[in-house]
């Protein structure tokens, strides 16, 4: 769990490709099994909306482990980063 926290922390500090790849390499061996995407705004109107949206990470019993950003910085470009969560199961709910 300590290792998962370190990788999560690095990605939160700087969501660049290197940190995301390290996080992804760790995923299979970690207790993180489920995710929920939380967008701060129903419409992404600006960069701040995107930067403040997160993915919540849970273990198999639904306990929150941490959160990571939804985006990746690739040089000057911003791309989504959900491909680095491949293997996890979605638990989004909407009322």
């Amino acid at each position: 769990m300590a290792k998962a926290n370190k990788e999560i922390s690095e990605v939160n500090k700087d969501p660049n490709e290197k940190n995301w790849k390290r996080f992804y390499a760790l995923l299979a061996k970690s207790p993180i099994k489920q995710y929920r995407v939380v967008y701060r705004s129903r419409k992404l109107k600006n960069r701040q909306d995107l930067y403040s949206s997160v993915v919540e990470l849970f273990d198999a019993k639904g306990r929150l482990i941490g959160t990571v950003p939804i985006y990746e910085k690739k040089g000057k470009k911003i791309r989504g980063a959900t491909k680095y969560l491949t293997g996890l199961s979605n638990i989004n709910r909407y009322e």
């Binding site: 995710y35 939804i70 985006y71 990746e72 791309r79 989504g80 980063a81 959900t82 491909k83 969560l85 491949t86 293997g87 996890l88 199961s89 979605n90």
Partner: peptide
């Protein structure tokens, strides 16, 4: 056409 915020299940299915 991938904007990077597809569902992880979608990426796995693609692979």
């Amino acid at each position: 056409i991938d904007n990077g915020i597809d569902f992880p299940e979608t990426y796995k299915f693609r692979q």
